[in-house]
Amino acid sequence: MSFIKNLNQESIVLAITVVMFALASLLLPGFFSANNLVAIVRSVSVLGILALGMAMIIIGRGIDLSMVAIMAMSVACYLQMLNSGMGEGSALVLALAGVLAIGLINGVLVAYADVPAIFVTLASSSFVFGFVRSQLINTDAVPVPSGHWVEILGGMRFMSIPVEVFLFAGLALATFLFLRYSKWGRYVYYAGDNPEAARNSGMPVRPMMVLRYVISALIAFIAGILTASSLHSINTRIVNSNLLYDIVLITVIGGIGLSGGKGGVRNVLFGAALIGIMLNAMTIIDIPLLYQNLIKAGILLGAIIVDGILNPRDEQTAQQGDI
């Protein structure tokens, strides 16, 4: 009985991951090979990096639906400026300034105007995409100028492992250290668990919230650079794809409760591993992309239902307007 009692989402996900990995290795030809394993890790690196930012926001009881838009559009903007002959430094500074501005707007609207995060970021996602697409660039895809460091980054290998894997690992470690050992990192949990109490006990809840949205925007920019480096271009249509839901899927399935205050980097890693293996396996089995979307969305729904059962809300405790 104690085993079942101790069963939580994290261990279930870990068990499923292991089982899936074992099954895939046994049944799927070419799954358990060094190349494929590297490909799996590589494929989830960008997703994982985005999920780290999302996780930090969700732990603080928020959500950021604008990550994919920021990721694609900031990099598209940056590359467009480079292509039109702007200097490296000024282009980077401008792109980063834009990223910071959007993060700040998100954060300020959520923290100080008390607008639900989900609406703010939905609106800013739409705005960022629309603004950049209509005002700043004129094609869907923007290529990386040849010989640029972003291109070189994509080709870099260390012990034959692509560099983004190390970047993912480094960011995961940094996030882990921040959340676990820094004072503001611990505050994220308190603010997520009970924002009123955190505020009453003197934590700078609102500035911290702004900071989180800024960090998540910056993380999105990094993820965008990595995407561009491996594909040698950035396609803005990615904003309309299901990438955003994959990020939410990783965080939620890893066991980070949507009501905030729970989870950590470990959950992101487990979630990323499960999703990475699943996506890879589905590709090897040759399931069409449309069906993959259906399966992923189905799993996400399942994860949300489980989350709802594990962290139940009822008429007495549910907060008004908490949608």
């Binding site: 609207l109 607008v115 609406f119 609106a123 739409s126 603004f131």
Partner: peptide, 19 residues
């Protein structure tokens, strides 16, 4: 107006209206 203008305007309207 070109592609994206609608999304931009919708985003602004949504954010403004909600706020």
């Amino acid at each position: 107006f070109g592609t994206g203008t609608n999304q931009m305007v919708l985003g602004i309207m949504l954010a403004l209206a909600v706020t």
